[in-house]
């Protein structure tokens, strides 16, 4: 249920970049290694977005597959199943190259500026 906190953190991040303009789409990249449930995130996002620049915005979520690199033999491989071991040499010394992402990639803004005064009243 940390998706509630994460949704709040998304809104905070977006607010720093939206310049007071209403956001229509938030493009998110979430790595498979993060234990984030997209449905749950969307549910909470709709809730915490109310009366912010994200009010009514849609989350467009790109899931990034897990990609690992073996520190011993250099093999790059996709994370497939529960094991992080290198399929080439069996080593467990692996680095995560992709799959840990959790970032706001970009925003699609409309042309409407948020009514700050109304939003302020709604928040209090």
């Amino acid at each position: 249920m940390h998706e509630l906190s994460l949704a709040g953190a998304i809104v905070d991040t977006v607010e720093r970049h939206a310049d007071g303009r209403l956001v229509e789409v938030v493009n998110l990249r979430i790595g498979r290694l993060r234990q984030v449930v997209p449905d749950s995130l969307e549910f909470y996002f709709d809730f915490v977005a109310r009366d912010t620049v994200c009010d009514g915005a849609r989350l467009a979520i790109e899931i990034v597959a897990g990609q690992l690199e073996c520190a011993s033999c250099g093999t790059c491989f996709a994370l497939d199943g529960p094991s992080f071991r290198c399929p080439g040499c069996g080593s467990g010394e692996v680095a995560v190259i992709a799959g840990n992402e959790f970032e706001v990639e970009s925003l699609e803004l409309g042309e409407t500026e948020i009514d700050e005064e109304a939003a302020c009243i709604a928040r209090t």
């Binding site: 994460l6 953190a9 998110l28 706001v104 990639e105 699609e108 803004l109």
Partner: peptide, 17 residues
């Protein structure tokens, strides 16, 4: 309708970090 695309590329948990 015209939309503006804004690049962000920011980790959502930056503030926590």
């Amino acid at each position: 309708m015209h939309r503006t695309h804004v690049k962000v590329l920011e980790d959502v948990l930056d503030a926590n970090g």
